[in-house]
Amino acid sequence: MSAHNEHGERPAEVLFGERLTRRDHLRRSAMLSGPGFLWVVIFLFLPLLFMVGISVLSRGAAGEISLTFTWENFQRFAGFGELGFDPMYPTIILRSLVLGLATTAICLVMAFPLTFFIAGLRSPLKNLALTLVVIPLWTNLLIRTYAWQILLAGDGWLARAAAWVGLTGAGEALYPGTLAVYTGMVCDFLPFLVLPLYASVEKMDWSIVEAAMDLGANGWRVFQHAVLPQVKPGVAAGCILTFIPAMGTFVIPDLLGGSKTMLLGNAIQQQFGPSRDWPFGAAITLLAVVIVMLGLWLFYRLDAKRGEGMIL
């Protein structure tokens, strides 16, 4: 839709039974798309710009935003605070990255058998199996997360089994802790990986797999050369859909982890909530945005051939 003539003027054209000039296009865009765009710009993009602004301001004595310029907020999460080097924030960043990547990797490994199992079922069963993956996705994440507090409680059978094997002491709860956070994360995000992967597996050309097997490839090589290239788009989409919310989550570590499992999301919540240091909170938020954008860009590069419209 960018055919301009030499004067930069869009020629009048007939569209949906109407003759439209460039002016008509602009007027109608403004009328139709204007209000929605304006809404998102005012209530999301403008606030994000404010966020950039206050990230270089300081916190006043009473928790208010003081209009003095400083780089201190960014130095702080790099580890250089007022009291010398403090590894707390660099650790949080690293931990969030590791947790996000590990959750994505674990979900991916789990999604493969489940997806191929569903794809191999007969039609009515297949729809049922697929609906069973969708239902948890539409069930509130908060509920599915706090339920693990019950499942991992000290007098629950999972904790007793762990104590019996000798992993933990008797009567010891399996939460809060890193294990509980991982369990909650994987359980909550698994459907995000299964669904896009399934969409790819459904479209797979199985004759390529059969050909590879006929030619004597072993299981791993069949997977690597005949299956993986075909399901790559689904893997990429699923990884993005898992990694981004996993990086930003604050509910799961908040309910299932202790202070040792603080992530970026919790750090943001703490600064905007109890600590009331909004400038520092804004700096952490910006960092989270940068990490997410880098992640998106990376996946986009890895999957450049598919181009735009990959996410949805």
Partner: peptide, 18 residues
């Protein structure tokens, strides 16, 4: 696509601030 892809906590605190 930005509101679709950014973590909801980013959106939440940006609005709170605004």
């Amino acid at each position: 696509y930005v509101p679709v892809v950014i973590p909801d906590i980013v959106m939440a605190v940006a609005m709170l601030l605004f």
